[in-house]
C-alpha cells in the first residue's frame, strides 16, 4: 500500500492548518511526522485517514482517491490510533483488542490467535483479563496500539498504519518494543506513518521524516537530511546541536 497527499490543504474554522502539503509514503516504509505543537501533524493524519477531506489537493491510497473507498473498505486497509481514547467502560484487555478485529470477516478462533500474537509482541499477556479502565496510562496505550495493530495483523503487506504520538505515554522499554514491532511490520510490507515528538527516537527508527511548521512542509527526507541544526532551529525556534555518538546522530538541546 502507498498513501500520499498531493498539494493538500486543510481549512478549519477559516484558518488554513495545512497548505499545499505533498508527501508520499511507500509500502515497507516508516515515516515520522515531526514539528512543534499546532504545526498540523494531527491534521495531516486526519487527511490521510479520510476523517477530513482536503479543502484543496487530494489524498490517494494506492493511487486512488481516498474518498472513493467506503468506510468499511477503508477499515480493511488502514488502521489509525488517535491521541486519546474516550473508553470509560469496564471492558477486559482482551475484549478491547478483539474490537480491532471487527472489520475482518475472519473466524473467532483466527481472531483469538491474532489477539494473542499481538499481545505477545506488546508485552500484554499478563494483563489479558484486567479491566481496561484500571490500567495505567502507558498500559492503556499499549492496549490501544494492540487493538489497532490487530486490525491488519494478518495482512501486513496490504496495510497502512497511522499512529498519533504512539510512544508518548510509554516507558523506555516499551517505546523500544513498539518501534521494533513497527520495523518488523515494515519488513512485512506495512506502510507506517507516525506523529512523533521525540526527534531522536524518530530519526533512529524512521526511513523518512516529514518536518512540519505552520502547516507547511519544511523538510521531507531521510533522517540525516531532515534533522539538521538549521532546520530544527527554524522549526522549533530553539538552539540545538547535533552530535555524533558512536555513529548515531543525536540531537542535543
Amino acid at each position: 500500500m502507498t498513501i500520499e497527499l498531493h498539494q493538500a490543504s486543510l481549512q478549519l474554522d477559516h484558518r488554513e492548518v495545512l497548505s499545499g502539503v505533498s508527501v508520499r509514503v511507500e509500502a515497507g516504509e516508516i515515516r515520522s511526522v515531526i514539528g512543534p505543537n499546532g504545526a498540523g501533524k494531527s491534521s495531516m493524519l486526519a487527511l490521510l485517514s479520510g476523517e477530513r477531506q482536503p479543502s484543496a489537493g487530494s489524498c490517494l491510497l494506492e493511487s486512488k482517491p481516498l474518498k472513493s473507498y467506503g468506510i468499511e473498505d477503508l477499515s480493511r486497509r488502514l488502521a489509525i490510533l488517535h491521541q486519546q481514547s474516550s473508553l470509560d467502560f469496564p471492558f477486559t484487555v482482551d475484549e478491547v483488542i478483539q474490537m480491532g478485529r471487527y472489520p475482518c470477516d475472519t473466524s473467532d478462533s483466527f481472531d483469538e490467535t491474532i489477539v494473542s500474537e499481538v499481545k505477545t509482541k506488546l508485552d500484554l499477556e499478563h494483563l489479558s483479563d484486567r479491566t481496561y479502565i484500571t490500567l495505567s496510562g502507558g498500559e492503556k496505550q499499549r492496549v490501544q496500539l494492540a487493538r489497532v495493530i490487530a486490525q491488519l495483523w494478518d495482512q501486513l503487506g496490504q496495510a497502512v498504519f497511522l499512529f498519533d504520538e504512539p510512544t508518548a505515554p510509554l516507558d523506555l522499554t516499551h517505546q523500544r518494543q513498539f518501534l521494533q514491532l513497527c520495523e518488523e511490520m515494515k519488513l512485512a510490507g506495512a506502510c507506517i506513518v507516525m506523529v512523533m515528538h521525540d526527534i531522536n527516537l524518530a530519526s533512529r527508527y524512521s526511513d523518512q521524516i516529514t518536518l512540519l511548521r505552520d502547516g507547511h512542509v519544511l523538510a521531507d527526507a531521510a533522517p540525516a537530511l531532515a534533522i539538521t541544526e538549521s532546520l530544527i532551529q527554524q522549526a522549533y525556534q530553539i538552539d540545538v546541536t547535533i552530535e555524533d555518538l558512536g555513529g548515531r546522530r543525536v540531537l542535543v538541546y
Binding site: I71, H82, D88, Y102, P103
Partner: peptide, 17 residues
C-alpha cells in the same frame, strides 16, 4: 457495534462503523 462505539466516534469510524 455498541462495543466499538464505546471506544469513541472516531475510533468506531476507523473500524468501519
Amino acid at each position: 457495534r455498541l462495543n466499538i462505539i464505546t471506544l469513541g466516534d472516531r475510533e468506531a469510524t476507523g473500524l468501519g462503523v
